[in-house]
Each structure stands twice: as structure tokens, then as C-alpha cells.
Design a protein around this nucleic acid. Structure first.
Lengths: 356, 356
DNA sequence: TTGAAAGCGCTAACAT
DNA sequence: ATGTTAGCGCTTTCAA
């Protein structure tokens, strides 16, 4: 391995600028009380030496570590890893955080957390003392984990919660309006002339699932439409549950003209199950999903769906964990709901839904 | 923010164990010359205090930082970010690295690198002096970037290159055999009885593209099959280039019974373009892809494709950048080719290919 | 407005 | 086999 010259330290910069290390530090931290001349000399020295402060030294000495840690569910990740596929949600989340983090010269660390471990509290605490992140991004479904929140609070580490469901006053909460999105999608179907609409839920344990169902039911009710017995199938976000649902719907002879599935995988299952029985979309039946996963776009029948602003949520999360950079916090796109920052979703109409 | 008690330091552990900090350090680092009694006392103290060494302090003091940094193409990421979708490749890569990294209590940092920047060298150098990673994972297409390799060498930072194309003796190289994979896929089609097979390339700038084409041509030649004029279309890995290719093929009246596209997106384009012209897969035409992206699985016509062992490659990369844990390096699955660690791919047969 | 000195929590030489 | 003493490169008091 080559060595080049030893890397420049703050002492080198100070020497080159004819100043003390404290002055260099002051300049670099943008502290007050520095004469322009000193500042210029320091900056010139920094520039010419290609100097960068050591992250370790800074964080050891007490400054912020400039590390934002994203806590990711280990079990979920292992599942994905086993199946050999990536995780679109995580990927988008990460991109958003990355884009934001680099603006302020921070760094993103991805940490696998075994939320099922009985030593979760200790593990997490250990993690925090080890890397001392400046802030932590919590992802669903663990944005609500009470042990995690407690440990974070106790450690005094700032955190942002993506898609939280409870205790919205704890930490910075960022979410989208699941209920309204489902409401809008349902309204979209109704606007297309559909009257008999079926719904496939996600796991009832998720509040998001319940909110989507709620949005669906409300939109139906608000439009004076009734939901037939058996027109709500209980799924679990899997492709297979979509297949089962459509088979049940078709078998029950409910005469449904549209199916709204709680996520894309399920909707894709509905689509395939329908096709297998000779029912075409959108000619015979309209199908809508939720999430806008990659598969939604590329399927032979591109899926009408709700795009979650995952990247944006993560970017906002990161932004709220880092020092305000230019003094201007942009709260433009967001409104607050019960203390949550609400980020707008997008209803994407593709081929799978059409007029009756 | 709560505070709890101040976090335990090595001094606290030493005091609790009735030993010196050096002994604690020794135990924790698994150094020799420690009596079992001492070790036990130290471990007990560590355990009861929930002590974890500070990453900053360790790395400052000279130990390895235990940080593995994955360098990711900023431009590519921004593109993905703009389009609102995740990056399956990156996601899988990251999972592999994560799984491996956590086994040895290391950490994964994702760093966006602007490879197009004219100050790339300085930027990268600055990044390295700032975070001082123990090792760096390079992803394609930048595994070959000469400036990056030079800076890394000069900084004395170990690196692993995923899917490198040149200078395979530099760093740790991990790849799959693109040519052989394409060869196998072609052989698969031939085995199904196909004789007139079309091929859609990726961007010729990528060596991987050229290798895939090479594999295709070799397999055809080895089986005594000729490739008709116009049966090779030049694409660019996009969906649209698949659509264009199939239109060209169909328009030319080559009588092709199978199309092998250089990646899944392109294959999906082929599939859709064919469907648009009433040509069904696999009844009328077989279509094969490459990469096994999520969309390949969920499309109405699931795609026969090559699964790249992205996660495995990343895991191996990470493994080679970290200290050998139990002394046993498992080289079981890998063979070396020109100094590259070769990881096996998988040919996944789905619905889109069938017998003539 | 600037600087000197004292740590931050570790590891690394160097004793013992 | 164990302990002492310096740093690592910064930020922070506290002086000047």
C-alpha cells in the first residue's frame, strides 16, 4: 500500500495559516469572532492541504458525530436476503436520506437491528454508545417500538420516525395520510363508474392497513355505496393473498367490477388470479394497488397505485436530525397532523383501472 | 432528553474488574497473555456495565475503524431518486454487505460519490481522511475507475471491487462469469428447440454487455447455429430499447422464435412490444432476460432470467475487508479467474421461455 | 479576537 | 502476565 505523505491534521493547517489550532477550529465551525483575514488564511491552508477534519476526533472531542444511523429490521432484511431480492422500500428510504445527508457533509450508516431479540434494549444501547450517531432514523414497522424509543430517549439521541402510528409526540414524526390516500383511490374507482368494489386488506396488525381499509370504507359510504358481504378480503400484503382474494371474490359471484388491494404485491396477485380465470384487466375488472413498487410499473398490465413518498420522508427525517444549514427550514410541502409531518402521496393512474 | 447515567468507559470497566485499562483493552481485543481469571472479571464487568468501546476513540487511537464504506454512484442514485424508485441492485448489494458486516461487529456506511466531478480525486481523498474506513466496496460501473483506485491505493485503504473489468490484480475482485451465464441461457433456449434466436445487447461501453453478447454468439456457434443479419439489436438496458428491438425483429421478418435480452428491463420491453403486436410469449416467442430484477418475477409473464449473486458478491467483498474472524476463510464456493473471485449465478426458468 | 492547555476514550509502546 | 504513560486529532474550557 502506498502512503503518500501523512494526512494533514489541524496542526498542519494551523502552521500553514500561521494561526493556532483553535482558530482553525473556529473557522471550520463557523464560530463568531474571527477576522476575515484569519478566516481567509485558514481557508486557503485548508484548501491547499486538502484538509478534512477527522470524524473520529471530532466526535470523540464532543462535537456531533455527523453520523445519521438508519435502523433497519434485521429479520425482514434476512428474509429479503434469503429470497435474493432487494428491498425497494428500504432502497428508496435510503436514497432520500443519502441525498439529504450529503448536503451537510454528514454520513449515513445502516444498522441492522434485531427487534425480536430479548436483549434489544441492551443491544441498541450498546450500538448507540459505540457509534454515537447524531440522529437515528426509525423505519416502520419499528418506528413505534416502545423499547427503542425509550432507549433513544434515555441516551439522548435525536430520532425521526417514518410512518409512526402511536405516541406521535415522541421524536420527529413523518408520515403520509394513508387513510386519505385510500379514500382518493376509492374515489378514483367510483369516478370511473364502479359501484361494486372489493377490497383486500393488509395484516390487521398494521395501523396502516387499518387506515387504508378505513379510507376505502369512508369513500364508499360518502358516495352512498354499500360494501357487499364478502367484498372485503383479509390479506397479508403477499402476492398469494391477492390470488386467494380474487378467487374468493369470483367464487362468491359478487359481480365486483373493481378491486382495490392494500398493496401492490397483493394487487398483482389479484391480477394474476383474475387472468388465470380468464378475467381481464381493465376490460372485465379494474385493479388498484398501493405503494408503487417496481413490479407495478413493469407488469404486462401496469398497475394504478399510490406512490408513497418514501424518499421524501427519509430526506425530511434526515433534515430534521441535522443542524439547520442555511437557517431556512423549508416546511413548504408539509402540514402537521397530530404533530406528524405529513408528506403528500401521489395517485398514479396506469392501465389496470378503467371505466366500467 | 433523558440522560441516564454517563456511559461507561474503559476506566469504569477497569475499576469494576480491579484491573488496568490496558488489561481491559487486551481482553476486548483478544490479545494473548491474559489469565482466565482476569478475562472473566473483565468480561463480567463489561457485561454488567453494558460497556461498548467507542468507535471514535478506537479509530482515533489507531485501531481499525470497523467501518466499511460502500461507494455509490451519486448520479445514478439521483436518477433513481428523481424517478421515485429504489435501486434493486444497490439494495441487494447492501444487504449482503450488512449481513456480513454485523457478524464481526463492523458497520456499513453508504457514501455517495460524484464520479463525474473533476475534483473526484480530492473529494474521495477527503472522504477517506474524514471517515477513515477500514475498507471500501466499489460498485460497478465504477469498480474500474482509475482515479478511485489510485486514491485508494495512495491512502492505503483496502478495497473490494464488485464486477470489475480491468486490472484485476488491484484490490479484491469479485465477479460473476457474465459470458458463461449468457452462454448457458443461450444453451437453454437451444435445448428448448430454438434455432433462430435474436439478441438485444446492452450499452457497448460496458464490458459486461460485450461479455453477454460474446456468450450468446459462442453458444450459437458451438451449436452450429448461425445468427441472422439483423438478429442482434443494439440496446441500452432500457425498457424502450426492448420495445424497439422486438419491433425491428418482427418488422424484418426473421422468423425468430426466441429473444435473449441483455437485461430484464429490456426483456420486459420485448415482451410488451410483442404483446402489442399480438405475439404471445411463450406460445409464439420465447423471451429471456438477465439480472432477475423484481419486475421479472411479478410480470404477467414471469421472466426466465439469470440471477446475479449480488448479495453474495457484496458479502464476500465485506468479508475480505474485515479481519478473518474464526481463522477459517471459506473459499468453498468460489474459484479464481484471472485473480477474480467468481461467484456462481443462477439460471432461473420461468414462464417466458418454452419449447418451440 | 485569539491562544494555551486539558481532556474525550481508546490503543500502542514501553516498562515491570 | 499486567500496568504506566503517551499520544491519536479534535473541541472545550479558560486565559490573555
Amino acid at each position: 500500500m502506498g502512503s503518500g505523505m501523512a494526512r494533514a491534521t489541524i496542526y498542519d493547517v494551523a502552521a500553514a495559516a500561521g494561526a493556532s489550532i483553535k482558530s482553525v477550529s473556529r473557522v471550520l465551525n463557523g464560530e463568531a469572532n474571527v477576522t476575515p483575514g484569519l478566516r481567509d488564511r485558514v481557508m486557503a491552508a485548508v484548501e491547499s492541504l486538502g484538509y478534512r477534519r477527522s470524524l473520529s476526533a471530532r466526535s470523540l472531542a464532543g462535537a456531533s458525530s455527523s453520523i445519521i444511523a438508519a435502523l433497519v429490521d434485521a429479520e425482514l432484511t434476512i428474509e429479503h436476503w434469503r429470497s435474493g431480492r432487494g428491498n425497494d422500500y428500504l432502497s428508496r428510504l435510503e436514497m432520500g436520506a443519502l441525498m439529504e445527508v450529503r448536503r451537510t457533509d454528514h454520513h449515513l450508516m445502516i444498522e441492522l437491528v434485531d427487534y425480536a431479540s430479548e436483549s434489544l434494549g441492551r443491544d441498541l444501547s450498546a450500538l448507540l454508545t459505540s457509534i454515537r450517531p447524531q440522529g437515528v432514523i426509525l423505519t416502520p414497522p419499528n418506528s413505534d417500538h416502545p423499547v427503542v424509543l425509550d432507549v433513544l430517549d434515555e441516551a439522548g439521541v435525536a430520532y425521526a420516525r417514518i410512518g409512526p402510528e402511536r405516541d406521535l409526540q415522541r421524536g420527529v414524526c413523518i408520515a403520509m395520510d394513508e387513510r386519505q390516500a385510500a379514500y382518493d383511490m376509492t374515489a378514483h374507482l367510483i369516478a370511473l363508474g364502479h359501484r361494486r368494489i372489493g377490497f383486500v386488506t393488509g395484516p390487521v396488525a398494521y395501523v396502516a392497513s387499518r387506515r387504508r381499509l378505513d379510507g376505502f370504507l369512508s369513500a364508499m359510504a360518502d358516495n352512498g355505496l354499500s360494501v357487499a358481504d364478502g367484498a372485503v378480503a383479509y390479506g397479508d400484503f403477499t402476492f398469494q393473498s391477492g390470488v386467494s382474494a380474487i378467487n374468493a371474490f369470483l367464487g362468491a359471484g359478487l359481480g365486483l367490477t373493481a378491486i382495490f388491494a392494500s398493496n401492490d404485491d397483493t394487487a398483482l396477485g389479484v391480477l394474476q388470479g383474475a387472468a388465470a380465470r380468464g378475467v381481464r384487466a381493465p376490460e372485465d375488472i379494474s385493479v388498484a394497488g398501493f405503494d408503487d413498487t417496481p413490479a407495478a410499473m413493469f407488469g404486462t398490465t401496469a398497475l394504478t397505485t399510490i406512490r408513497q413518498p418514501v424518499s421524501e420522508m427519509a430526506a425530511i427525517a434526515a433534515r430534521h436530525l441535522m443542524p439547520v444549514i442555511s437557517g431556512v427550514q423549508d416546511e413548504t410541502l408539509k402540514q402537521s397532523l397530530e404533530g406528524c409531518l405529513i408528506v403528500p402521496y401521489e395517485l398514479i393512474v396506469r392501465r389496470s383501472t378503467g371505466a366500467v
